[in-house]
Design a protein around this nucleic acid. Structure first.
Lengths: 193, 193
DNA sequence: GAATAAATTTGACCTATATCAAATAATTTA
DNA sequence: TAAATTATTTGATATAGGTCAAATTTATTC
């Protein structure tokens, strides 16, 4: 798959929510650039402001934060998803989140300034942002429900459903911290059946 | 406080995110209407599509869903906040959420069709929606963190911080289901100290 | 303002999951 | 590919918070 085809993925993603004019496509193409990360590489350090948003083409990025010196996984992002540190990116100030690459990852990125330019000049981009945030919203609400009521096993089942395409590629310890259970408990859940 | 002053609250809320032209103010005023709910009254039945978004002026609305026949509180909304059933309102289909009034409540509402008209004709409304959703997003992320790692007591402390102005007006059972702990445990937490 | 209903508290007991510790297994690096 | 590091599993024990039941307090209704 070459670079031109990859850009098509992003356009397809936009077109789930809005129509893309040729003019907007051209402006997007000029501002969206490819980038690669090696397995284990840090994509965002929480000590810096997040100025880029990444659209994943291949691989998995993980967002996490530190609690008592330990890495707590916040979410995982696979193909055809945008990743950034939301509050940091939008408010242009530091937040608690780090981002790293669980696997070697190919992505595209756009700078926050370029995005702002697009928001200012293409009202449909505002609409895209509103609508695409809405769908992420739904996932968050579902997750809040799943975190509250389920046993550790039910939480794990929900995780596998949510991340059905990539769950098996995420190390056990990261899954455990994502679910808010211990590694030992998760290991035992996996063992039975 | 009369109706005109109340509308000012909504305008102030918008103006945290965007500038309101006189034209837009006038269009908003024509579409935003007052409504009242008695204590205990059902605002939205999950068997219907949510076609209105409510901006609270006084009182508290609660969003909840049913699990095994029991009401599970999802969130509480106080003064100067919008309330609706997000997925139902945006996607125009049924969702699991009910909304009721914990206290006698004064609110304003706008119909989804009117909102769509505003989105179509005032790009700054799209921006308002994007930016205001962003701040709700932050709260969700914080809540997901708080639900995962804290003891029941820490969860309750976080709840009191999040709802510092209204937490004492919400019945214990509703708080417990919001936090995903039992009433008994919450009662014991409240008792000590 | 009794009577009734609903919400909250208190008690006794039990279970899922945490914690601590050590053994394997898998992955990385020299 | 052997050594070293890191991840996962397994075992023994402790405990926070769940469950069930009943008492008490508070709110609602006639």
């Amino acid at each position: 798959m070459n670079i031109i085809e990859k850009t098509e993925n992003i356009f397809e993603h936009f077109e789930k929510f809005i129509e893309l004019s040729e003019k907007l496509k051209s402006e997007l193409s000029q501002r969206i650039k490819p980038i690669e990360f090696k397995k284990g590489e840090l994509v965002l350090d929480a000590n810096h402001i997040c100025t880029k948003s990444y659209f994943i083409n291949k691989g998995i990025l993980r967002t996490y934060f530190l609690k008592d010196g330990k890495e707590i996984s916040e979410y995982f992002s696979g193909i055809n998803e945008w990743v950034n540190s939301p509050k940091s990116f939008i408010l242009r100030k530091k937040d608690i989140y780090y981002i790293d690459a669980i696997e070697s990852t190919q992505a595209y990125f756009i700078n926050v300034n370029d995005l702002v330019y697009l928001f200012d000049n293409f009202p449909e981009m505002e609409r895209y942002a509103r609508l695409s945030m809405g769908s992420v919203f739904g996932h968050f609400m579902e997750r809040i429900i799943s975190m509250r009521f389920t046993t550790a096993k039910e939480k794990y089942d929900h995780f596998r459903k949510t991340y059905s395409d990539i769950y098996h590629r995420i190390p056990l310890g990261m899954v455990a911290s994502y679910l808010g259970i211990t590694q030992e408990t998760l290991s035992r859940i996996r063992a039975e059946k």
